[in-house]
Amino acid sequence: MVENRPWLNVLTHLVLVVGVIVIAFPVYLAVIASTHDEGAFLRGVVPLLPGPHLLDNYGQMLSQGMSTSGAPPLTLMLANSLVMAIAIAVAKIAISIISAYAIVYFRFPLRTLAFWTIFITLMLPVEVRIIPTFKVVADLGLLNSYAGLTIPLIASATATFLFRQFFLTVPDELMEAARVDGAGPMKFFRDILLPLSRTNMAALFVILFIYGWMQYLWPLLVTTDTKFYTVVMGIKRMAAVADADPQWNLVMAAVVLAMLPPVLIVVFMQRLFVKGLVETEK
């Protein structure tokens, strides 16, 4: 804005500050809680300054977990979540970029039908088809396995659609030039389309990683063996203990640890992420 209106500046900043506090305060509280002892949050006055038990709490959660609520060590759950999120993100990108390539660059019978079929699955997220999907996964013997955790979540219309839109903006002449230069379909895909989609893939990876990390309902259904627990569902299990007070300090330590990977992914891939969303490199 060119106009200089001080009261407007004050007002906008006020709104922003309030917004930040609303978002950040619970996170802050979680961090603080994870540094106190067991009773600190149950005594009535919520402490606002860090306590002395940071290392104890995190150490216990990482190495032993919370046996009273049947939660395995966080390292295991974090590893499971990581495997699941990465597998989902990578596989989703791989499958959707290939199907988008087929749909955009090849003329085959029922191509439009194929596209619309993929598109329609947008209306069928896991939550909608959860019972039949569970039945299929159970019959295939995939309960309590990484395959069972990831495969049903891999098919992705969104990513296919995103790549399709991107491929449509790549000029046809590029494909023709490659053909004249002696590149077949696979070579064109590998040498030209893939490098051009690099930033799109990065942006999608961030989104899909977080999507995979946040999965709650599906892991809750298909895992009964603690070996395959993921961290998001594990936290729920810790917070809801029967016949005892929840150990908030430990739960919050788990929460903070569970928040870290998505934050790190966003921080480290931010540059590529933004590029992939705004830039069209042609």
């Binding site: 002449e173 023709e176 030039a177 030209i192 690099r198 490199e281």
Partner: peptide, 12 residues
């Protein structure tokens, strides 16, 4: 060999 109107150079 073909020269295209919009050059069609590989951008990357």
């Amino acid at each position: 060999a073909m020269v295209f109107q919009n050059y069609a150079l590989y951008p990357h």
